[in-house]
Structures are given as structure tokens and as C-alpha cells.
């Protein structure tokens, strides 16, 4: 991800009002599971998936995991 710790600190979790921190998050996607450092709320654990990630790397992974 291209955001600095400071930058994401300024983003607040909508429910908790906490500043987000970078966290190692595990997620399953299609037939694979991955981990990535993503901004998350330290209190409720909610993960922010930016449009950049969704459109970029995750779309790339999706294409790779597709059947021929």
C-alpha cells in the first residue's frame, strides 16, 4: 500500500472514531487465502479496502485465480 502510518492515522473508523493502523490481515479470496498489510481499526478490527487495492491487486489476483 502506498499510504504512510501518519496518513492513515488521520483516517477514522466510522463506528469507533479511532485512527486506523496498518495491520496484517488474512483474507480468503476465490480459492486462495492471502495476507496483506491493510489499514484497520485497532478497536473493532474493521478493515479498509481502498479502491486502489480492489481495482488493482485484487483484480489481478482474481484474474489469476480464474479458470482457463
Amino acid at each position: 500500500m502506498k499510504f504512510s502510518e501518519e496518513e492513515i492515522q488521520n483516517w477514522k473508523c466510522e463506528t469507533c472514531g479511532e485512527g486506523l493502523v496498518m495491520r496484517k490481515v488474512e483474507f480468503s479470496y476465490m480459492k486462495g487465502s492471502f495476507h496483506a498489510e491493510l489499514p484497520a481499526c485497532p478497536k473493532c478490527g474493521l478493515v479498509l479496502i481502498t479502491e486502489e487495492l480492489a481495482m488493482g491487486k485484487m483484480a489481478e489476483a482474481e484474474k489469476a485465480l480464474e479458470d482457463k
Partner: peptide, 13 residues
């Protein structure tokens, strides 16, 4: 047992 990082996976593929 640990899943790969998204970046490693995208490189590996």
C-alpha cells in the same frame, strides 16, 4: 500453514 502475502502471490503467478 501461513498464506502468502498478496504481493508474493502476484509475483509468483
Amino acid at each position: 500453514s501461513e498464506p502468502p502475502s498478496l504481493d508474493d502471490f502476484l509475483n509468483r503467478i
